[in-house]
């Protein structure tokens, strides 16, 4: 039976990634697919070591499927590969110092490897992506307007949208229950149409590496359609972290 682990925001934190992998190994129902939805690299960690680890899974580990995120896009911009040159988003956010830091934190060779990754994955009736199909920087949270969440689900053409930009772990069911639409053209006025439809959801997959010792990710069982939040406390250095599963339908 399929069981997906979906994570985001490792940001070069190898210890946190190892802790998550250890937690994945401990699952009673084996994890069959591992998705990393962006922000593999970041400012602080050892990005080179992390990318090496991600690219060479150990025997028995699922092969990570990785798509790009906000930090990857900053690298592309900085290296002139795509988007606007000179990473203006990064400059706006964190001043010039960080631009230099990022330049040093990720080698060009690694950036070129990252540039070949997908923007996201369509699997079954799910879209897995860093922000949304609108943009890698689109930040969806439980506070985002319901209509915006609904719009992102429609654009995603998916029943479940897994995203990582906010770093938050959440499951948000959106039910567009009623809407009457009437279209008039030059030739006719069509009868009003009821556009309500069944609920769909946006899932925030948490963040692995931003806060030391506070990794979170989600498990998804496509068979039961159930999302389980995972929090991994402590780091590999301390041995085994306690893993606490929180789940609901």
């Amino acid at each position: 039976m399929a069981n997906w682990a979906i994570l985001s925001g490792i940001e070069g934190n190898l210890a946190a990634y190892e802790a998550v992998l250890a937690d994945i190994r401990r699952q009673r129902q084996p994890v069959t697919d591992l998705y990393i939805v962006g922000d593999l690299v970041g400012l602080r960690g050892d990005n080179e070591a992390l990318v090496r680890r991600v690219r060479s899974p150990q025997p028995g580990e699922p092969i990570p499927q990785v798509c790009t995120g906000w930090w990857e896009e900053q690298c592309f911009s900085l290296h002139g590969l795509r988007g606007l040159p000179d990473a203006p988003e990064l400059v706006d956010r964190d001043r010039l110092g960080t631009v230099k830091d990022l330049w040093e934190a990720v080698s060009r060779q690694t950036v070129l490897w990252l540039a070949d990754l997908d923007f996201g994955f369509h699997e079954l009736d799910c879209l897995l992506i860093h922000g949304s199909t609108v943009s890698y920087s689109d930040e969806l949270t439980p506070e985002t307007s319901p209509l915006t969440l609904c719009d992102r689900l429609i654009r995603a053409d998916a029943n479940t949208l897994f995203c990582g930009r906010s770093g938050l772990a959440f499951e948000c069911w959106v039910e567009p229950s009623a809407l009457q639409s009437t279209v008039t053209t030059l030739d006719q006025t069509a009868a009003p149409q009821e556009q309500g439809k069944s609920p769909r959801r946006v899932v925030g997959v948490g963040n692995v590496g931003r806060q030391a010792g506070q990794a979170s990710y989600v498990l998804y069982n496509p068979g039961t359609n159930k999302v389980t939040f995972k929090q991994v406390q402590g780091s590999l250095a301390k041995g085994f972290g306690a893993s606490k599963g929180l789940s609901h339908r």
Binding site: C150, A169, C172, E175, P176, S177, A178, L179, Q180, Q231
Partner: peptide, 14 residues
Amino acid sequence: ELDNGTLSVKVQQP
């Protein structure tokens, strides 16, 4: 014309 648009939202966080 878009009338009577209604959405309900259910949020779960750990």
